[in-house]
């Protein structure tokens, strides 16, 4: 891979120095924090949304399904923009924030929000087709045997989809850590404070510090390769189950 070759062009010493730079370290930390909040949040939303859509009939279901996919067809830049409009200096939620003394734009909460937005569909999309195909037979059996709703969900529904869930989390995490456009708009690019790894790559690149830029990029590329490896592993081991969820 080119990224690794470029990263190591100036020798291992430069590479290590670029990665252990305090700004780089803080970028890595922020990326981990943002993904660490966004992925669990979407895990809850995704499972709840998939559960409601796959197991129940209600009006406006198609509408809800379309809405879940919406972040896929919205530009990440627009995703960032909407939060700036809402919480930014002249945003309409601004007075509320000022009284509570919360900073969202150009701070960590904004980055987390933007990350949640762009990764919103990943888990739900992975689960819905599979859950729909499994139908409600298992749940009905559980309910008729006296399980309550929560038990049914925890012991029947969730184990049925656990591999698809893991798959969704994997993709969601990859996107969350690598998101650039949306985060770039809301972050404000304050070095050492609101810079995530992809943003740090851009800054170094624009300073013509190519070796350092590719060094940080190589970490992200490594993450991508790890994601792909885990994904192929899951596909090989639980292929039949996942294949079903892929067909839609």
């Amino acid at each position: 891979m080119l990224v690794f070759a470029e990263a190591l062009r100036n020798g291992l010493g430069t590479y290590v120095k670029a990665i252990t730079d305090p700004d780089a370290l803080s970028a890595i930390k922020l990326t981990l924090i943002a993904a660490g909040i966004a992925v669990p949040a979407n895990l809850v939303f995704g499972v709840a949304a998939a559960w409601a859509i796959a197991k129940f009939e209600f009006r406006g279901k198609t509408f809800l399904t379309t809405l879940i996919d919406l972040p896929f067809s919205v530009s990440p830049v627009v995703a960032g923009l909407i939060y700036v409009l809402m919480f930014g200096a002249s945003g309409w939620a601004r007075p509320l924030l000022d009284t509570a003394d919360i900073q969202i734009i150009f701070a960590v909460p904004g980055i987390v929000l933007a990350t949640i937005f762009v990764t919103f569909p990943f888990i739900a999309r992975e689960l819905i087709p599979l859950m729909q195909q499994q139908g409600t037979d298992d749940e009905q059996a559980a309910l008729s045997l006296g399980a309550n709703g929560w038990q049914t969900f925890w012991y029947v529904t969730l184990p049925n989809v656990k591999w698809a869930l893991l798959y969704g989390v994997l993709l969601c995490n990859a996107r969350a850590m690598g998101e650039f456009g949306a985060v770039s708009v809301v972050s404000g690019h304050i070095r050492g404070q609101t810079n995530t790894m992809p943003l740090h790559v851009e800054i170094l690149y624009n300073e013509y510090n190519f070796a350092a830029s590719f060094a940080v990029a190589s970490l992200l590329a490594g993450l991508a390769l790890l994601t792909l490896a885990l994904k192929s592993f899951l596909e090989a081991r639980h292929g039949s189950e996942l294949a079903r969820s892929q067909k839609h």
Partner: peptide, 11 residues
């Protein structure tokens, strides 16, 4: 899909 877009861009 997996590669962050910024990394894809510089590569």
């Amino acid at each position: 899909f997996a590669l962050p877009t910024a990394v894809a861009g510089i590569a």
